[in-house]
Nucleic acid binder design. Structure first.
Lengths: 130, 130
DNA sequence: TGGCTTGTTCTATAACCTATAGAACAAACG
DNA sequence: CGTTTGTTCTATAGGTTATAGAACAAGCCA
């Protein structure tokens, strides 16, 4: 698994790690039951502190995407999108979509981009995107 | 113009202000040429420091959404979505969409939500959303 | 059993960000 | 002329980020 993390970015490292792992799950690179690298191992790969990796894993655990276990390590779990998550996600989507609209992009253009991104994920079957 | 800002949120106030103004532009509440309140006025309305409002306005100016002028104050300007913006926006959309997919939402479900949000904006004409 | 790994949990610290505060200046307005 | 407004300084308290060191319990393997 290759995670693209930019140590010079203004986005916190632990957030980038979380984002890249979430994308790997959506992409199908990580499926239910997939083990994640040990915190110290992943930290050594990037040359960062293992506490930073720990923070990223803790975020993923709070969101119900992985399960942490002394026995099995960090493992991807099947997640359920409950109503609170859907509401909070929609609010964030609203802000992001508004930014594109305010910048002059048309709704059709924006939707096409979203469709293209969703199609690029390995987990979404073609018939899901009408 | 009513801006919903939560002073207790963990999201920075200047970022919330920026987000709400961007949404107001997408919504058509603020159109090209619309004047924004003076920094000290808006700060007084929310009971916050005017430097915080200044930071939000500065962000909007950096993104080319408003123009700051000693003569006219802060005014909404017609923005153009250049290729660098589109690329950066798509990257952010990818992260957000991945989060929904990882949570188990279907691509059709996600697209329907995006379409619904876009339709709720007053600036997008109905024929833009096929 | 003994050594090793791994998740977990403390404390601590330097650097940076957020928000507030006060002050001052130049340009425009009435 | 007085007021408003954008702009630009300095300063400070509190929080976040990233690093660092240390320690412990549970599991793994030779």
């Amino acid at each position: 698994m290759i995670l693209n993390v930019d140590l010079e970015s203004d986005v916190p490292i632990y957030q980038q790690l979380r984002d890249r792992i979430v994308e790997a799950i959506a992409d199908g690179v990580l499926t239910h039951g997939s083990p994640l690298p040990a915190t110290r191992t992943l930290a050594a790969d990037f040359g960062i502190n293992f506490h930073t990796v720990n923070k990223a894993y803790d975020l993923l655990r709070q969101q119900g995407l992985i399960r942490l276990n002394r026995k099995t390590g960090a493992v991807v779990t099947p997640a359920v999108a409950d109503p609170p998550f859907r509401a909070e996600w929609t609010a964030r989507a609203r802000t992001l979509l508004a930014e594109a609209v305010a910048k002059g992009l048309s709704a059709g253009d924006i939707l096409a981009t979203c469709r293209s991104v969703l199609d690029s994920f390995g987990t979404t079957s073609p018939e899901d995107t009408p």
